[in-house]
């Protein structure tokens, strides 16, 4: 534990390491990465396309309840934000960019709720196309979105996940 470097050199020489990494790559390719290692694990995709803060809040509450029932490790939950739903992850400083009638909703309690769900393993994916359509062209307006979670098209992503075995829920 105290000599990581030595451990690493060992790992580097070990052929098993190669095999393991190779296997991981192979899994990624075959899409098996989506296969739940444990068949009891539910795969669910939530679709949020509504910009109304109250509706978004209630959607988050649905997700949290879902996790409460299944346990944090019992479900693999992805939330796809598309259409007006992208406002859920917009910081308040995005407000001037937004067209009328929309609000940047990643504030206060909602923000805490999002961060909490993230800690519990929920992934939030944002539709880049929907963002651009609403005048948001910079990810600095987003609440800590990993570039990998900024998907070009939310619809495509919803289709892809369902084809990979995810159950679709529109709260």
């Amino acid at each position: 534990m105290y000599d990581r470097q030595r451990e690493f050199r060992f790992a580097w020489k070990c052929p098993l390491w190669f095999c393991f990494a190779g296997l991981v790559g192979l899994l990624v390719w075959t899409g098996a990465a989506y296969a739940a290692p444990d068949s009891a694990r539910q795969q669910v995709v939530y679709h949020i396309s509504d910009g109304d803060p109250d509706r978004q809040r209630s959607a988050l509450r649905n997700v949290a309840n879902h996790l409460n029932i299944l346990g944090d490790d019992g479900a693999d939950i992805v939330v796809v934000l598309q259409g007006d739903g992208v406002t859920l992850l917009l910081r308040p400083d995005a407000q001037p960019q937004l067209p009328g009638g929309l609000s940047a909703n990643a504030t206060g309690e909602v923000r805490i709720g999002i961060e909490d769900l993230r800690l519990r393993g929920v992934r939030f994916e944002v539709c880049a196309h929907s963002l651009a359509r609403r005048g948001i062209d910079d990810d600095r307006y987003l609440l800590d979105v990993d570039p990998a979670d900024l998907v070009p098209s939310g619809i495509d992503e919803l289709v892809r996940l369902q084809r990979a075995g995810y159950t679709y829920i529109k709260p």
Partner: peptide, 20 residues
């Protein structure tokens, strides 16, 4: 908003705060 502040995410706001 009808939900009283702090109860929206039940225990999870607490959890998050503790984690911080």
């Amino acid at each position: 908003m009808t939900t009283p502040k702090g109860t929206l995410f039940g225990n999870f706001g607490r959890k998050r705060r503790l984690q911080r």
